[in-house]
Design a protein around this nucleic acid. Structure first.
Lengths: 114, 114
DNA sequence: TTTTTATATAATTATATTATTATATAATAA
DNA sequence: TTATTATATAATAATATAATTATATAAAAA
């Protein structure tokens, strides 16, 4: 992957955003799947506004994108972001988080949004 | 470099620490040179206690080590830390910071501590 | 021994962050 | 149209972070 070098300040901003367990895990999930808010609420057992606010922060710097599909809003990784190669490098250091989605399916809780 | 995979929580902790411009730059400097506190104070134009407190946070999780040499305390990167490969991957994304040290030398301000 | 220099720590203050509760909006279902 | 569902936003409260000022410690110099 191309090694993009950007300013210290920009990198620090991204690191601060990913320096939160919830947001870091969200990014790991979004790297492989798009997710809607209700799935994330289920996975993290956290209030809907809390999840929305984490997503907002990630969206504000353009790291994730949102797409409305009917009543649901799906979030996805912005792989065109100039920081995406940094994100990938970081995610390579944490364990796969996809089981969290699989568990949701098993529990049948796999929410309406599909 | 070996790709060490550790827990999400631990990675988030490191990212939060490096999610500060000053600490991120300190880490970039220490990756190539040991530095004493007074040099960092000069470079960052920041109070001595402020620098000491940043160093303390990095030391508390073991990312940096300190060595006393006479009246000075030199800080260095702990390259044996299990997170060091993550650190390296991150530092690859920011510009070289060594000129900051060179500037110090030029200014002749290159402090007593050598 | 006293003074000076380098650094750490404690106390404080200002600011930022995170989560909760309450409310608004937008789409669908009844 | 009204009710319901999914999500966002605003207000608030609790907590964390970062910087400053004041003080302590440890080594070296006088």
């Amino acid at each position: 992957m191309k090694q993009v070098v950007v300013g210290v300040e920009e990198v620090a901003t991204v690191l601060k955003l990913l320096g939160d367990k919830t947001r870091l895990t969200i990014m790991a999930l979004l790297d492989n799947n798009d997710c809607c808010v209700c799935e994330l609420v289920e996975i993290f057992q956290m209030s809907q506004p809390a999840i929305s606010q984490h997503l907002r922060k990630l969206k504000d710097v353009g790291l994730v994108k949102e797409t409305r599909k009917a009543q649901w809003i799906f979030y996805s990784m912005n792989k065109e972001h100039e920081m995406y190669s940094l994100i990938k490098d970081i995610l390579a250091h944490i364990p796969d988080q996809q089981e969290k989605l699989k568990e949701l399916e098993k529990k049948g809780t796999k929410i309406s949004c599909e």
